[in-house]
Design a protein around this nucleic acid. Structure first.
Length: 672
DNA sequence: ATTAGGG
DNA sequence: CCCTAAT
C-alpha cells in the first residue's frame, strides 16, 4: 500500500537488489540458447572478444578490470560452477571500481537481447539460494540507500555535437538504457526517471547550450552516469561495497523518520551517547525486542555479505540527534522526503568511466571533432556514479529469520520500483527547482567546481497515490495496522517503512569521510515539499522463516541505533482497554506495574510508553471528539480514563499496596 | 531502573 | 515518542 508511495524513493537503490537476479536469469536463458546453437566455445570466444575489445577501447587501467569483470560474467553464463563465479565476483569486488563496468558492459555486448521486464517477479525461477544471497547483499551493502550519490563530472568543452545527439530525452536515454539493458528491464520506470532527470537538468531551457548539455549528458550517461551505476550495482556482491554505503535498514517508523543527525555534528554526540545509553537501558527491559536491522554503516553488517569489504565509515558519528531532534521535528514533516543526495564527486568510481567503453569513447570523439565549430560552447560533463536512495526502514520481529528479513527487504525494495521517481538537483545545498534555468545560470559551468552539486531522488507525487487514507493527515500510517502484532506469538514481519530523511543528509558527511576530498553540502530543501512526510508501511506476509534460517547477523548489528526514533505504534483499542483497566486498579504512578500487569509480553511498550499513552488518553478524553485523531477510542474507554484520572488524582496512587479504584464505576467520583 | 513532566 | 531530571 503505502509502499507504493514510497517506492518512488529508491528506485535506483532498489534496482540493484532486484536486478541482479533478473539479469542473471535472463542472461542465462539467452546464453543457453546461444550455446546450443554455437557450441560452448562460442561463449568463451565471445568473452574473449569482449574482453579484448574492452581493452582496446579503454586505455585506462580500469579497462582491464572491466574486462575481467566481463569475463567473470561470461563465465557465469557459461554455467561454470557457481562457486567459481562467486569467487571471481568476490575478487572483482575487491577491485572496486570495475564492478559497475562489468555489469553494464557485459550484458550489452554479449546478451543484448533481454527481456525488458525483469523484476522480482521474474526472479522466482532463480535458485532460492542465490535469491536470498542477493537479498542479503542488498541488505548488507546498503545498496538501497546509497546506491550512489556519486556524481562525477568532467569538464570539457566541445563545440560540436549539439546536433549529433538526439535532442529528445527518450532517445538519449534509450541509448543509455542499452548499457544496462538487462538491468533496466523496468525500463519504463527507468526511462521515466531518466527523463525526469533530464528534464530537471536541462529541459525547458531555450538556450542553445541545452543541446550541448544534452550531448554531454548523453556522454556521461554512456560513461557511467546514473544508469551505469545502477547496472553496476546489480551485480550481486560485486559492486556494492564500493558505492553503497547508505542503505539503512532500521526499524523506525514513518513520519517520524528523519535523520536525527545533522550536519551539526559535534555538539550532538554527547547527548546522543547519553540517550543511547538510556535507550539501551530501556531496551534491557524489553530486551527481546529486536528493534533494528543493521544499518548501512555497520561494518559488521556489511561484512556479512559475501565478498564484501567493509567500506563503511563510521556514520554513526554523523548521526546525532540530541538537541537537534526537536528542531528537526517540526521540519521533518513538511520536508518530506528527502531523498538523499547524490552528491557529486569526482571520486573513484570513475576509473570506470575510462573503462566505460565504446560508447563513451565514440561520443568523445564526436565531440572533439566538432570542437572547432562552436568553440564558445562548453559542456559540463556529469557522471553520476550512483544515486542515494532514502532510508529503508524495516522492522521485523526478533523471531524472524534472516531469510525472512531478506525477503522483507526485497519486498520493500521491489515495492519501490513500482513507483516513480524523479530527480532533483541540489546545488550548494539548495534545491534547484526551476527547470528552466540553464546550468550556467545556476552556476554550473564547464570550468566550475561542482563539488556542491547533487542530485536527489524524489517521489513522483503526481503519480503516487497514497493507498492510505487516514483521516489524520499527519499520519500516513495505516490507521490500524499491526496492532496486536506483538501479542501474537506467530512470527510475523511487522512492516517495512520507507522513509526519507528530510532535514539532514548525513550521508553527505559520511561521504565526506569516505571521499575525503569532496566538499559536500548538506541538502536543505529550500522549499517545503507539498507533501507530508512520506511514510510507507508494507505489511509483509509471514514467511516461512525456518526454511530460510540463516546465521544471524552480527550481534552488533542487532543493537538498535539510538539515533533512530522508534517506530510508531499506535495503541490499539484493546491495548487502550488494557491500559485503562490496569490504571484503574493500580493508579497513575506505577507504570512499571502497569506494564507488568498488562503489557508484560509487549516488549515494545515500555512503562514510559504506557505513561505517555495515558497522558494522551487523558488529553484525548478531554477534547472534542472531532479533535481526536487516529484510531477512535471508544467513548466508554475515554470515560473510564477520565474517571480513573480523576480518582487517582485525588488519591495518591503511589501509596503502598494496590488500592484499586474503589468503585469500579466512578460516575460519581468525578464529583469530588 | 523508575517516575514525572515537558517537548 | 523523545529527553531529562530527580528519585
Amino acid at each position: 500500500m503505502v509502499v507504493k508511495k514510497r517506492q518512488e524513493y529508491g528506485f535506483y537503490g532498489y534496482q540493484i537488489p532486484v536486478i541482479p537476479r533478473a539479469p542473471r536469469s535472463l542472461r542465462r536463458s539467452s546464453l543457453r540458447k546461444k550455446l546450443q546453437d554455437d557450441g560452448q566455445l562460442c561463449a568463451f570466444e565471445l568473452l574473449a572478444a569482449v574482453a579484448g575489445k574492452l581493452l582496446q577501447e579503454s586505455e585506462s587501467s580500469a579497462s582491464s578490470n572491466i574486462a575481467e569483470g566481463k569475463v567473470q560474467l561470461g563465465i557465469n553464463k557459461d554455467s561454470i560452477k557457481k562457486e567459481q563465479v562467486e569467487e571471481r565476483v568476490a575478487r572483482s569486488a575487491c577491485l572496486d571500481q570495475e564492478s559497475c563496468v562489468e555489469s553494464v558492459i557485459f550484458p550489452e555486448s554479449a546478451a543484448p537481447q533481454r527481456n525488458t521486464k525483469s523484476s522480482l517477479k521474474e526472479l522466482p525461477h532463480i535458485q532460492t539460494n542465490s535469491y536470498f544471497e542477493h537479498a542479503s547483499v542488498v541488505t548488507h551493502s546498503d545498496i538501497l540507500n546509497k546506491v550512489g550519490g556519486d556524481v562525477k563530472y568532467d569538464k570539457y568543452t566541445s563545440n560540436s555535437a549539439a546536433g549529433s545527439f538526439p535532442s529528445k530525452p527518450e532517445e538519449i536515454f534509450n541509448g543509455d538504457g542499452k548499457l544496462c539493458n538487462e538491468a533496466q528491464r523496468k525500463s519504463a520506470v527507468v526511462e521515466k526517471q531518466n527523463e525526469h532527470l533530464y528534464m530537471a537538468n536541462f529541459s525547458g531551457s531555450k538556450d542553445p547550450r541545452d543541446y550541448h548539455v544534452h550531448s554531454s549528458r548523453k556522454l556521461n550517461n554512456a560513461e557511467g552516469s546514473i544508469k551505469f551505476s545502477l547496472c553496476a550495482d546489480r551485480v550481486p556482491g560485486v559492486s556494492f561495497p564500493r558505492h553503497m554505503n547508505n542503505v539503512k535498514i532500521v526499524d523506525r517508523d514513518d513520519d517520524e523518520n528523519y535523520f536525527r543527525s545533522n550536519n551539526l555534528n559535534s555538539k550532538i554526540k554527547p547527548s546522543r551517547q547519553q540517550s543511547y545509553n538510556k535507550y539501551r537501558r530501556m531496551k534491557k527491559m524489553t530486551s527481546r525486542y529486536w528493534r533494528t536491522a543493521p544499518k548501512w554503516n555497520d561494518c559488521e553488517f556489511i561484512n556479512t555479505g559475501r565478498g564484501n569489504r567493509p567500506i563503511y565509515h563510521k556514520r554513526k558519528s554523523i548521526h546525532s540527534g540530541g538537541g537537534y531532534q526537536r528542531e528537526l521535528h517540526s521540519k521533518r514533516r513538511r520536508l518530506y522526503d528527502h531523498r538523499q543526495l547524490c552528491h557529486y564527486r569526482s571520486a573513484y568510481i570513475f576509473d570506470q568511466q575510462a573503462s566505460s567503453d565504446s560508447i563513451s569513447n565514440s561520443a568523445k570523439k564526436t565531440t572533439k571533432g566538432d570542437k572547432s565549430r562552436t568553440p564558445a560552447l562548453h559542456k559540463v560533463k556529469f557522471s553520476i556514479k550512483s544515486f542515494k536512495v532514502p532510508e529503508l526502514y524495516i522492522e521485523v520481529p526478533e523471531t524472524a529469520t534472516v531469510g525472512s528479513l531478506k525477503i522483507t527487504v526485497m519486498e520493500a525494495v521491489t515495492a519501490i520500483l513500482e513507483g516513480g521517481l524523479h530527480v532533483g538537483v541540489v546545488l550548494q545545498g539548495k534545491r534547484v527547482r526551476d527547470d528552466n534555468r540553464t546550468l550556467q545560470q545556476i552556476g554550473i559551468s564547464h570550468n566550475e567546481d561542482l563539488d556542491t552539486l547533487g542530485f536527489t531522488l524524489e517521489p513522483d507525487f503526481i503519480k503516487a497515490t497514497s493507498p492510505i487514507s487516514c483521516k489524520d493527515p499527519e499520519l500516513l500510517l495505516p490507521c490500524d495496522e499491526h496492532q496486536e502484532l506483538s501479542r501474537s506469538s506467530v512470527p510475523v514481519l511487522d512492516s517495512v517503512f520507507f522513509n526519507s530523511s528530510i532535514d539532514q543528509v548525513p550521508v553527505s558527511n559520511l561521504e565526506k569521510n569516505v571521499v575525503g576530498n569532496q566538499e559536500i553540502v548538506p541538502y536543505v530543501p529550500d522549499v517545503p515539499m507539498e507533501i507530508s512526510a512520506p511514510k510507507a508501511l508494507v505489511p509483509i506476509p509471514p514467511v516461512n522463516a525456518n526454511t530460510l534460517a540463516i546465521v544471524p547477523v552480527n550481534q552488533k548489528a542487532k543493537r538498535p541505533d539510538p539515533s533512530q526514533r522508534r517506530t510508531r505504534r499506535p495503541f490499539s483499542v484493546s491495548e487502550v482497554e488494557a491500559l485503562v483497566e490496569a490504571v484503574e486498579k493500580l493508579g497513575t504512578g506505577r507504570w512499571r506495574d502497569v506494564k507488568m500487569r498488562s503489557f508484560d509480553d509487549m516488549n515494545h511498550r515500555t512503562y514510559v510508553d504506557l505513561k505517555d499513552k495515558w497522558k494522551t488518553l487523558v488529553h484525548t478524553a478531554s477534547i472534542a471528539p472531532q479533535q481526536r485523531r487516529g484510531e477512535p477510542v471508544p467513548q466508554e474507554l475515554l470515560d473510564r480514563v477520565l474517571a480513573a484520572h480523576a480518582y487517582w488524582s485525588q488519591h495518591q496512587s503511589k501509596q503502598h499496596g494496590k488500592h484499586q479504584m474503589d468503585p469500579p464505576k466512578l460516575a460519581g467520583e468525578v464529583g469530588f
